[in-house]
Amino acid sequence: MSGREAILGKVRNALAANGSASDRQQVVTERLETAPKGIVPARGKLKPAQRVALFRSMAEQVSCTVRQVKKRDTIPRAVMEYLRSKNLPAALRMGDDRRLTRLPWADFHTLDIKTGPSDGDDLSGISYASGGIAETGTVMLQSGSDNPTTINFLPEHHIVVVDAKDIAGDLETLYAKLRRKFGRGGMPRVVNLITGPSRSGDVEQKIVLGAHGPRAVHIIIVDA
């Protein structure tokens, strides 16, 4: 008997008294199809303006820096200012997300832009988030050539752009968005929820930023 049959058999035997097989299957199928929502905290259900304000303050509480800009076109300037303020070289890694590649980067001809996944030598990388969560100050990123996963983790500084309209109150809203895009039961290869720069408290419980992932996360919120 295979491990699979043995384990499932033991589980079935142990649960044998819990109703007929068809009833149980129906309960499970229904649950998987309806995905009932549960409790969303009140602070995850704010109106758009308050939502962005909460997102911002929650992100700052977990040591992100946040900047809000009016239009996408101003992202390159905001990025350059961030790099300068941190004394970082004018170099940036990004994927092929058109919301990023089409921006007027050429205005800053000293800026060295590399595209594709990070090779581990990048000091700064930029990604376009598919959403934000106000409840916790979290950004959501999806794998793919648009925004390669390695950019989320290898550079020392991670700049994340998120559109104000994509900032949801709660995680459940972003799940619903994923379902619309990938179909019921579908998911991108990786979804990263990121809440602040990487950190560790493993030496005497003292929280230190910059464990294995970025030492700093800079969020740029785009109003329109």
């Binding site: 979290t138 793919g144 998911m187 290869r189 990786v190 929820l193 990121i194 602040g196 720069p197 992932g213």
Partner: peptide, 15 residues
Amino acid sequence: QESSVYTTFSTGPRR
């Protein structure tokens, strides 16, 4: 913490 820093959802190999 209100949320851990990284919550990662992995579904299958490279696409």
